[in-house]
């Protein structure tokens, strides 16, 4: 039996009738067409699917969409300011922090949550907080550098 889901996605209020067994990632990708959130494992083990819910990075493949009821969700599509890339996005590009890019949405959303919480992280802080993110391409070092760089850029913005 379908149930009503009301939540805010990238600043827009949404109301949907969904099957409660659906995961948040399914609703985002399939019902809302927000395919920037990727999905790479079936066991909650890679954090590829990370989105921000009420300010915290969470795995959209491991949360039922109904668990997002009444909450505020930000996906990778909601990060840029109109045509202008967010400083984290630009830092990822400039530091070659992405290769195939499949894990990047999750990495960037987690980086956003991290920097919101801790604007001046050390490399160790980043390693600890981003440890759940698997990436088969990069070897992580350049992602860490991008986040350190993004922290500087964000400070410069203020």
């Amino acid at each position: 039996m379908k149930q009503i889901l009301q939540f805010t996605v990238n600043g827009e209020p949404r109301e949907l009738l969904i099957d409660p067994k659906k995961f948040l990632v399914e609703v985002l990708r399939e019902d809302l067409g927000l395919t920037g959130t990727h999905w790479a494992c079936d066991t909650g083990a890679c954090c590829c699917c990370t989105v921000i819910m009420d300010g915290k990075a969470v795995k959209s493949c491991s949360i039922l969409a109904m668990q997002a009821n009444g909450r505020e969700v930000t996906t990778i599509e909601g990060l840029a300011d109109g045509p202008n890339l967010h400083p984290i996005q630009q830092a990822f590009i400039d530091n070659w922090a992405l290769q195939c890019g499949f894990c990047s949405s999750g990495q960037i959303m987690a980086a956003k949550a991290l920097l919101d919480e801790n604007p001046s992280p050390t490399r160790e802080d980043i390693q600890l907080q981003m440890d759940g993110h698997l990436c088969r391409c990069t070897g992580f070092n350049m992602i860490q550098e991008a986040i350190l760089d993004a922290a500087e850029r964000l400070k410069g913005q203020k």
Binding site: C47, K56, A57, V58, K59, S62, A110, L128, D131, G132
Partner: peptide, 9 residues
């Protein structure tokens, strides 16, 4: 314990 994402929720 697992990842920040798991621990967050």
């Amino acid at each position: 314990v697992s990842s920040t994402e798991t621990r967050n929720y």
